[in-house]
Design a protein around this nucleic acid. Structure first.
Lengths: 176, 176
DNA sequence: TATTGTTATACTCTATAACTATA
DNA sequence: TATAGTTATAGAGTATAACAATA
């Protein structure tokens, strides 16, 4: 007796969804002079991949009480080699507003993951420092983080990783 | 007399910022068994590229009174070939909650870009339809949209676009 | 006058839960 | 009982503008 085929599960449904939508975008695209399907489908895949990636990492981080923005701040604090950073430094490294950093640092302080110290050489500024608790949390999370990244690329040959990196850099530099 | 060197402008500053941050991430990464720098730098570039891309398109759309989420809904309505969609259909195509779609459709209706019609075959449902005004707005925006995408990829050879598409698909399928 | 940080406010995008009306 | 949509509420992440304190 023949084996039953494996029932088409979620990925197929997602592909149907994508093709339903994309087929039409491609069809309608013919109307536009500049429409470049190989470029458009690459961009759509890029955006869709980002969504999938962020859902994945947001869940992973949530298991440690972290959010992506908070994780980024914690990484910056942890990787500054003991050098205490002003909030304004963080805002420049993260490319977000100072007001935003106030909120993110508040969140870290509330959880005991960072603390503020007065800057003796500049009365306007705070110096932000990761606490042992913050360091411990980050160090408990990071092995999972890096293992996940490694696994995502596990089917990539070294040259493919390099090539994707190169093409992404080229892509980024094309945006202006 | 020697010419003054061109002052290093934004891109260089950004690269410095990135290298400041990345150099440390790479240095510290050595501690972790699974740390795979070619993978990590590709992922960081991917995320950074997305940020740059979204800032760019968000601004472009804002010039037409559109936001990314509203644009997506408008595209779905416009590309459904006259077939009126239930809000639930939109939520499935967009992979967002029904409550979310209510808000997005409200925004479109408020601006006169879409309208709701009763579904005669299902008293629970609304059928959502793009209005001529919505169509006109979308059609005024799309040439810029596609021109921008084309320009972003203008330095790509056809094979490079294909390869980036392939690698992004592979990347996406590695996320689980 | 310029800079650092805070507060107030607001916008986009998203979600869940409880609800109504209908199937 | 299941489904379509709405409402209320929440929360993350972002921004600008006005402000106080300090440089």
């Amino acid at each position: 007796m023949k084996k039953r085929p494996i029932p088409p599960a979620l990925p197929v449904a997602e592909d149907l969804r994508a093709s339903y939508y994309w087929t039409r975008i491609r069809e309608f695209g013919k109307k536009y002079k500049a429409f470049d399907w190989p470029a458009v489908r690459t961009l759509l895949t890029f955006v869709y991949t980002y969504d999938v990636l962020m859902v994945h990492f947001t869940k992973l981080m949530a298991g440690y009480g972290l959010s992506p923005a908070v994780f980024n701040v914690l990484m910056i604090l942890s990787r500054s080699s003991g050098k205490k950073l002003k909030q304004h430094d963080i805002s420049k490294l993260l490319l977000v507003s100072r007001a935003n950093v106030t909120g993110l640092v508040n969140a870290l302080v509330r959880k005991g993951l960072a603390k503020r110290e007065a800057d003796r050489s500049d009365g306007r500024a705070w110096l932000v420092k990761i606490t042992p608790k913050g360091k411990a949390l980050l160090e408990s999370y990071l092995p999972h983080h890096y293992t996940t990244i490694h696994r995502i690329f596990s089917e990539f040959k070294p040259d493919e990783k390099k090539e994707l990196f190169r093409l992404l850099c080229k892509f980024k530099s094309g945006i202006r």
